[in-house]
Every structure is written in structure tokens, then in C-alpha cells.
Design a protein around this nucleic acid. Structure first.
Lengths: 204, 204
DNA sequence: TTCTAAAATTGAGTCAATTCGATTTTTGTG
DNA sequence: CACAAAAATCGAATTGACTCAATTTTAGAA
């Protein structure tokens, strides 16, 4: 027996996340009242708080799903990168950016980012920091790969470079989600322009 | 007559800011209740909301004071920078970082940053974005100065470089305020390490 | 099957930010 | 000095996230 209790738990988790995701998209984060999420998920308010510490953690669970998907997509690029440093970076960062609005609206991203700085020690705050680190690590892995392929100078500080690239992209992404009218192609072009300086410095 | 109404207004603004700054420092942003701020400033709750749209805007006014001070301090470096690219960047960013905790606690910074992404169109959200842009502009001005002095190659894209340097510092600063145990010297060292890659690329 | 402890659910109650209509203060005019 | 319009102040009422003690459900031992 796989445990009735365990099955019910998983089912309720799923129902809460689905209800919340739908309502966040539909009415925005603030607009989606806990009471409405509870009703749609067919659980009580108290149960939601038994599963998640606060409203932010619900959003956090949704964000984690998205970022993990993005990271999986990124793995392909790292293992088989374009044979050109600029393109390789652009391809990886492009995947992050293009995937980013699949499940999450800009408003949801804004809230998620806000919560992660506001409550860095909450479950979601810690998870979000971890996700950032994983993405930084993936960029660092790409750089190491390019070094292995002889496309990037071996004496470059890959750690520092990975951080620099991630931090810049992340900050650009934050500004991007802050402006509803901002568009993905312009974001990517701006980041490419910034990275051009780095690429010139690190090409073998 | 300088206007009784105008004087009272300025006076109440000041009282509210002073009361809020004291309470934010003392009890944290969440811990400082509007009711307490109102009592300490000797105005009613309603009056506070006549002066500021929401609690975040009060914090915003305090942050603006701090950032403007930082920016003034930065002007000195731009007009008379150290004769070495790495040191010049380190000096300017160092001023930003060292000043940052004069009036604001890490917790206040966290809240301020969170609010600015959460509500980018609120008065404070827009002001904060403007402050970021001014700082980016100041870094860009330093780079232009260094180009003028023949320390940085003239063909470097100063705009993109300024953004890259600012974005990286800002992201590092965000992570810094998220961890209470993080220390300024380590933050500066990490940023210096990252910038070393850039410095190598742009030195004349 | 029956019973008890542990785990989970529930929703009325609490708390604090924000709103808004009634009240007070200031201004400028006659 | 009135007085009326405009500008500000005020705080009680509203709203919505979150808590917690009472109740219900599940697990598993006898």
C-alpha cells in the first residue's frame, strides 16, 4: 500500500499549486486571495498554511518548477555548445530568457524576486538563492567546457566570469520584468552587447 | 509670508521621516507599525497616508536620501580618479558599498529592494529605478574619464561596460544584504576579483 | 473489528495596512 | 473681522494574510 495519507497529501499539494497558478495568472499575485485559492483547491485556509508557510511559498513552488525546467533545457547547451564563445553564451542565456515566461507572468516574477530578497531565510527565499546558484554554476560549467574545447583562454578565472555573466543577466532580467512593455529580443540584444566586452577579453 | 501651510507640511514630512527612520532601525521594517510611526511623529494615521502612498514609500524617501549622499561622494572619484583602472573602479564602488549601511540596515535594504521590484510603478519604485540609472551613469562617467586620460582603450563600449559593472555590483550587493553575516571586505574582494577580468580586457 | 495516538483539517478570530467620509484648519476676499 | 472654499487632518471601518484550539481522519496495534 502506497499510503492513503501520502496520496492525499500529494493530491492536495497538486490541487493547491494548480489553483494558485491559475489564480495568480488570472488575477495577479495580490489579486489572488488565499480564500479563493483554498476554495478552488477544495481545501480550507488552514490546510493551505499546513502545506506552505505563507502565500509567497506557494508562488515559490511554482517558480521552482519553472526554473528547474529551464535548467534542464540548459544542460543540452552545456554538453554541446556552439563553436563560438559569443554564440555559446547567447544560446544558454537565450534559453533561460525565452523559457522564463512560459508559466510565470512578469508580475509573478516580480513578486517572486521581491519575496526572495524580502525573506531570504524563508523556505522559498533559500530555494530561490539555491536556484540562482545553480544557474551560475551552469554558466560556469559552460565556460569550463569552452575552455576544454580551446575556445576560451585557460588562464581565465572561470568562477569570477560565471558570476559576472550571471549577475549581469539576472539584473537585466529584473529590469525586464519590471517594465511590462519590455520585449525579449531587446533584452537579449542588450545582454549580447554587454557580453561582447567579455567575449573579446576571454577568447583564446 | 512663506506660507504657514507650506511650513507645516515640510515639518510634518520631516517628523514622519525621522520617526520612521528611528523605528525602522529599532524594530525593523515589519516591526515598525504605522500606528507607532504616527504616534511618534505626532500625526494621525490618515495624515501619513496623505503624505505617502504606502509604508514602502516612507522607506523609499529614506533610501533616496542615502543614495543621493552616496552619489555625491562618488562625484569626487569621477572627477579625480586613481591613475589605475582597477583601483579607480574599486574606489568608486567601494564608496557606494561603504556608505550603504550608514543610515540603512541590511533589513531596510532588503525591504527597499523588494518593494522596488514588487511595485515598479509606485513613486518609490520609479525613484529607485532612477537611482540605479544615476549610479550606472556615474560609473559610465568614470569610464569615460579614464578613456580621456588614456587609461582605457577608446574603442571600448563605455555604455555596455558601465551597465555590466553596475549590474554585477548591484547583484553582489543584493546577495550581501540577504545574508546578515556577510561582511563588506569580502564583498569588495569578490567584486574586485570579478572586475579583474574586465580590467584586463579594457586597459589601454 | 475496535480502540487510541498521531496527523491533518477546519474556520472563526487576530492583527496591521490601508481607505474614506466626517471634521477641522488655513487661506484669501470683501 | 467675518465667511466660504480649498486643503489637510483625523480615526473608525474595511480587508486580507495568517494563527490556533477544537474537531475529524488515518494508522496500526491488540
Amino acid at each position: 500500500m502506497s499510503g492513503l495519507r501520502a496520496r492525499q497529501k500529494a493530491d492536495r499539494h497538486r490541487r493547491i499549486i494548480e489553483a494558485a497558478a491559475a489564480l495568480f495568472r488570472e488575477s495577479g499575485y495580490e489579486g489572488a486571495k488565499i480564500e479563493a485559492i483554498a476554495a478552488q483547491a477544495e481545501v480550507s485556509i488552514g490546510t493551505i498554511y499546513n502545506y506552505y508557510q505563507n502565500k509567497g511559498d506557494i508562488l515559490g513552488a511554482i517558480v521552482s518548477l519553472e526554473v528547474n525546467e529551464v535548467m534542464n533545457a540548459g544542460r543540452g547547451v552545456v554538453s554541446n555548445p556552439p563553436a563560438n564563445v559569443g554564440d555559446a553564451l547567447d544560446t544558454l542565456l537565450g534559453i533561460y530568457i525565452e523559457h522564463s515566461l512560459h508559466y510565470l507572468s512578469k508580475e509573478m516574477w516580480r513578486q517572486a524576486m521581491a519575496i526572495s530578497t524580502q525573506l531570504p531565510d524563508s523556505p522559498f527565499g533559500q530555494a530561490y538563492t539555491g536556484l540562482d546558484q545553480s544557474l551560475t554554476e551552469q554558466i560556469r560549467a559552460l565556460i569550463a567546457r569552452l575552455q576544454g574545447l580551446g575556445l576560451v583562454r585557460k588562464d581565465i578565472d572561470g568562477q569570477a566570469l560565471g558570476e559576472l555573466v550571471f549577475n549581469n543577466m539576472n539584473m537585466m532580467f529584473i529590469e525586464f520584468v519590471k517594465r511590462d512593455e519590455a520585449r525579449i529580443p531587446e533584452l537579449r540584444a542588450a545582454i549580447r552587447r554587454q557580453n561582447r566586452i567579455l567575449v573579446a577579453a576571454i577568447m583564446a
